[in-house]
């Protein structure tokens, strides 16, 4: 009774039961409730931290030979063992996270920039431009993804920068398609029409209205594509067409370690497990972001 009296007599301000929340806050709440998504976030954050602080965290120099400790099994002083040159595998794995994450982020960055631009143009302007862009994308999709990356590497030559370019190119059609379909789904909405009738230029409408409203699927796709990019890059390096020894790239390490599979199986097992862990992390994060942003999203 006392509370009601206070409110009626306006002595006390009562917080309304309805708290207006932004879609982003709601999305973050949904994301936090999803255990798998949070595990994904923890795994990816761990690798980002490892990559940033690699030189300070790693116990040994990843390139330093130690002829007294060749092919040692995991022990306290070398938790992941040593390789055929006595190099500490843990330190190499930690340094390798820099390479893999960089390939993932730069490669996917290239596909986002090119793919989103092409997809937005195709969806927004339509007509002949749309047909031309999408036919080119169809042709790129006619090549099995990994083969396309191989083809590009065969022209540019096997090294890390070219792996990033190859991976960047092979994801472009996927981004362009997703972006195009989101743009088409909103381009006739009232708020776009309103901006047009107020005299907004195409560039203004695209940057201010179209892209922010179509970004959700792109965020999800990018996270999942980082996972694919890391796997593809490791595959290319494994075939000897990506990072070259003595680089501590995980795929390249696995390829080197394969020769010692009987004498030192940890050289093949550990880098593979690490690749799987980081890729799993990005996939779980991508799944979680999709479920939090829009569970109906088709990616």
């Amino acid at each position: 009774m006392e509370i009601i009296e206070n409110v009626v007599s306006q002595k006390e301000v009562v917080a309304p039961a309805y708290v207006p929340r932004s879609p982003w806050k709601m999305m973050i709440q949904r994301f936090k409730k999803n255990k798998r998504a949070m595990i994904g976030l923890y795994i990816t954050s761990l690798f980002v931290i490892l990559a940033i602080f690699a030189p300070w965290i790693s116990p040994y120099n990843p390139f330093e030979y130690n002829m007294k400790a060749l092919l040692q099994a995991p022990s306290l002083s070398h938790p992941f063992g040593t390789d055929q040159f006595g190099r500490d595998v843990l330190s190499r794995i930690i340094h390798g996270s820099r390479i893999s994450l960089m390939i993932g982020i730069v490669g996917v960055g290239i596909s986002i920039i090119v793919g989103v631009t092409l997809g937005t143009m195709a969806g927004y302007f339509g007509g002949i431009l749309d047909s031309i862009i999408m036919r080119i994308m169809d042709i790129l999709l006619a090549f099995p993804g990994f083969l396309l990356a191989l083809a590009i590497i065969s022209i540019l030559g096997p090294n890390m920068v070219n792996v990033m370019i190859a991976i960047g190119i092979f994801s472009i059609p996927t981004f362009a398609r997703i972006m195009r379909s989101s743009v088409i789904s909103i381009k006739y909405k009232e708020f776009i029409e309103a901006t047009k009738s107020l005299g907004g230029s195409h560039l203004f409408i695209i940057i201010k209205h179209v892209i922010p409203n179509c970004i959700a699927p792109i965020i999800v796709l990018s996270t999942m594509r980082i996972a694919t990019a890391i796997l593809t890059a490791a595959g290319l390096s494994f075939l000897g067409l990506g990072a070259q020894p003595p680089s501590p790239e995980w795929g390249a390490m696995l390829n080197e370690g394969r020769e010692y599979i009987r004498a030192a199986s940890h050289l093949s097992t550990i880098p593979g497990l690490i690749i799987m862990l980081v890729v799993l992390g990005f996939n779980m994060l991508g799944d979680g972001l999709r479920d939090a942003l829009d569970p109906q999203m088709k990616i």
Partner: peptide, 22 residues
């Protein structure tokens, strides 16, 4: 399935060789 998607195919190949042929 998620593990399957995240597993590098070359690594799975090497592990299968280690298990089922070594």
């Amino acid at each position: 399935s998620l593990f399957g998607i995240s597993m590098p195919v070359f690594w799975m190949g090497i592990m299968f060789i280690l298990l089922f042929s070594y």
